[in-house]
Amino acid sequence: MTNICCSNLSKSYQGIQSLVATSLCLKQGSVTGLLGPNGAGKSTLIKCILGLVQADSGSVDIPAHVRIGYLPELAQLPPSVTAWQTIRLALQLSNKFSDKTAPSLLLDRVRLAEKHWHKPLRSFSKGMRQRVALAYAIAGDPQWLILDEPMSGLDVMGRKQFLEILLELNKQGIGMLVCSHIVTDLVRLCERVLLIHQGSIVDEINITEHSMSEAEALESRLMQTAEYSHE
């Protein structure tokens, strides 16, 4: 089994509680969304799971053999190297670099046009950088992808294509934890969405139809949660 579980994670920054005893379990191959307003603790939760941020208390249980790919928010990449060189590094770090075609196959998989492969990343648009970052994340042939705001800032076409790629990857058995505040994207992609607010998971919604009505219902739940906490 490649389930990822964490229990009672708490984290505070300079006295401000960012995560409050948060627990969750992700089942192999599933797609779970984390939805919440800015500052709700989504990114902190993801970073605690990945070990980028050390939780004040609680534990994360990830089996040793599990491979996780991570797409950070804003997908910052080293600016002066090319997409091809970056993906080659990802393959080398995962011991998957077989030959010179391997990076090309990955860049092709995330639909980055070949004419951009050997250009420095500083000349890339946000959408193109997201694709390279996704190729980087899947280079190690992961069982899990953890995506932090993967589609924020992309145009409609870019979001549509990115979503299609993610759905394709899920069909191949890759489980995902997707953090976002774009409700429609989560509804299209996820099987369940966890509503996170002020550092706690306050609600869990199962997505069955991936329809617009479900997106509207989810949005109103989010609004209610936010309003309730303001009262």
């Binding site: 990945l50 070990g51 790919g69 910052q76 980087y136 190690g140």
Partner: peptide, 16 residues
């Protein structure tokens, strides 16, 4: 500085 503040380090850290 970019590695630490802009999340570039997080690309490499899952591997080592």
């Amino acid at each position: 500085a970019q590695d630490f503040t802009q999340g570039i380090a997080s690309l490499f850290l899952p591997h080592m």
